[in-house]
Design a protein around this nucleic acid. Sequence first.
DNA 1: TTGTAGGCGTTATCAC
DNA 2: GTGATAACGCCTACAA
Lengths: 333, 333
Amino acid sequence: MNIYDISQKAGVSIATVSRVINNSSNVSEKTKQKVLKVMNESDYTPNVFARGLGKKSMQTVGILCMDSSDIYIAQAVYFLERELRARGYNSILCCTGYQLKDKQSSLKLLLSKQIDAIILIGSSYIEEKESDVAYIKNAAKQLPIILLNGHLEGENIYSILCDDYNATKDAVLKLIDNHKKEILFLYRAATYSGKQKLRGYKKAHQLRNLPVNEDLICLCDEEALNTTTLFDTLSKKGIRFNGVMAADDQLAIKALKYARKQSILIPQSLEIIGYNNSILGTCCEPELTSIDNKVEAICTTATTTLMRVFEAEDSTSKIVLSSTLIERQTTRF
Amino acid sequence: MNIYDISQKAGVSIATVSRVINNSSNVSEKTKQKVLKVMNESDYTPNVFARGLGKKSMQTVGILCMDSSDIYIAQAVYFLERELRARGYNSILCCTGYQLKDKQSSLKLLLSKQIDAIILIGSSYIEEKESDVAYIKNAAKQLPIILLNGHLEGENIYSILCDDYNATKDAVLKLIDNHKKEILFLYRAATYSGKQKLRGYKKAHQLRNLPVNEDLICLCDEEALNTTTLFDTLSKKGIRFNGVMAADDQLAIKALKYARKQSILIPQSLEIIGYNNSILGTCCEPELTSIDNKVEAICTTATTTLMRVFEAEDSTSKIVLSSTLIERQTTRF
DNA sequence: TTGTAGGCGTTATCAC
DNA sequence: GTGATAACGCCTACAA
C-alpha cells in the first residue's frame, strides 16, 4: 500500500495525495476529503524511509544517557518520550555507559541515523577536559544538541538545568543555621552538577564564616557504597558530623542506614538531606528530606526549546530552573 | 557524502561499494580494502533511509511499555536496549500509558514506522477479553511480537516470562510453614502476572488445606496506596494478618510502613515478602525479602529469541524462567 | 488547483 | 568480480 495505490483509488495524482498527507494548503476541500477517505479506508501510512529520503528528517530524536535504569534518568527518559511523541517525534534510546570512549562511539552511531536532534541526559557528559567534550561540540555542527543538567557553551547547543548551586547552598545554610555545623558532603562523581553542588556547599560555609573541612567532602565510588567502608573510615579517623548533604537520595540513604545502625537519632543528632526527591526517599525510615530538581519541568522545557530550535526561532542557549526543598523527616527546620 | 562519492574516489562502481558495505562475498580482497580505506578516510556512513527503502528494514525494534519510569520497567528497557544495540539494532521507545485505547493507538503508530519487531513489556498488555488483545495478534501479522512477563498464544508471538505462579506458591508456603497463616495478598491489577501470583497464593493454601479468606486479597488502586485507607479499613473490619505477600516491592513497603507505625514486630509478628527485588527493598527498614523475577535474564532471552526469529530459525513461543527468593530481614525462614 | 517528472541514496537484478 | 540500471516510496519544483 503506497502513495500510488491511494492516488489511483482516489482518482488523483500522487502529488495531490502527498499534499493531503502533509496538509499542504493548495488542495480543494473536496479533493482533500476524497483522498482522506480513501486513505482511512485503506489503512494507509506513509513510508517513513521514503519520507526521510526526501525530507532528510525522520521525525526522531535520539536520547542519550549513561544508564536508563537509574531512577532519575528513567524519569527523564519517560517525560522526554512523552513530550516528544506528543509533538510527533519518536525517541531512539541509547545508553552509553560511563566510559568516555563508549559515549563517543554511541554518539557517533546515533549521528549516522539521520535523526533530528540529540538530547543528552545527565551532567556526566560534560567532562573536565575541553578536548573530551569536543565530540559533543562537533556533533552540534550536524544537529541541535540539548543538554539536561549540564552546561556547555557552543553553537547549536542548548542547556536546561536546575540551579544545583543555589539549591545546595540554601539547604546547607539551613543545616548550619539549625546548629548542624559539621556537614558531610557526599557525591558520586565530579560531574558538572556534582561540582555545582559542591560549590554551593562551600559557599554556604563561607557565608557563615565557617571553615570547610575537606575530610567531610567524600567522593563515593561504587565500592564505598557497597560496603560501609566509607563511614567506618570516617569514624576511625575520628571525624564526626551532625549533618549530611548528599548529591543523590541513594547516598543519603546509605548515610541514614549507617546512622540508624549506630543508633544516632535522626533528625535530633543528625540531619540528612538528599537530592532528586526520588521514590527512594519515601521508602526509608525516617522519610528523607530531599531537594526536588524538577525532572519533569526540565524535560518539558527541553522539548519546547527543541521545537523552537526546529522552527528556527531564537532560543535561549541556557535555561536554569530552580529547585525546591521537600522537607520530610530527616530534618527539622 | 554518499555512495557515489565513495565509488568515484575508489574508482569502482556504486554496486561494488554497496557490496563492501554489506560485506557481500563477491568482492576481491583488494577492491574491498581499497573501498574500505576510502570509506574510512571520508568518514562516510550509509544513509539509513535509502537503506530502509531498499531493504524494508531499519534495524530497529520498538519497545512498548506503560511507563518507562517504573523501576522494574526502566530496568527492562535498559537491558533490552543494551542487548539490542549489541546486535546492531536500535530501540525506539514508546510509553503507552494504561488506557487500552492509548495502547492500541501507540502500537498502530509504531507499526507504521517500518520497524523490525515490537517488544511489549509488562503483562498489563494481556487484557481479559479476547477482543481486547486482538490488536496485538493483528500486529503479529506484520512483524514478530515479543511479550515480556505476559503470555498470549498466536502466530509470530513469543512470550518470555517468569514463573510467577510457582514463585508465589513457594513463597506463601514458606510463610504458612513458618506459622504465618493469615496472609494478606496485595496486588495492583488483575494483569496476567497478577493473576498468576494470585493463583500461586491460592494454591499454597490449598496444598496446606487452608481456606482462602477473600478479605485478605486486596486489589490496591492508586488511591488506596496514597492513603493508608487500605490498612485502616482492614483494621476496622477486624481483619488480622501476620504475613504479607505483595505483587511488587512498593506494595510490600506500604505494608511494612503501616506495620512499623502500629509497632508490629517484623519479622516476629509479621513477615513480608515483596516482588521484583528492586532497589526499594534495600532502602526500607528492615530490608525487604523479595522475589527476584530476573529482569535481566528475561531481557537477554527475549533478545536472543528475537534474533532467532529474524534468522527464521525455529523458536519456542513461550519461555518460562524461574525466579529466586531473596531473603532479607522481613522474613525469618 | 492539479499533474508530471526528477531526485533522494540505497539495494538488487541483470548483464558482461 | 564488477558495472549498469531499475526499483523502493515519497517530496517538490515546474508545468499546465
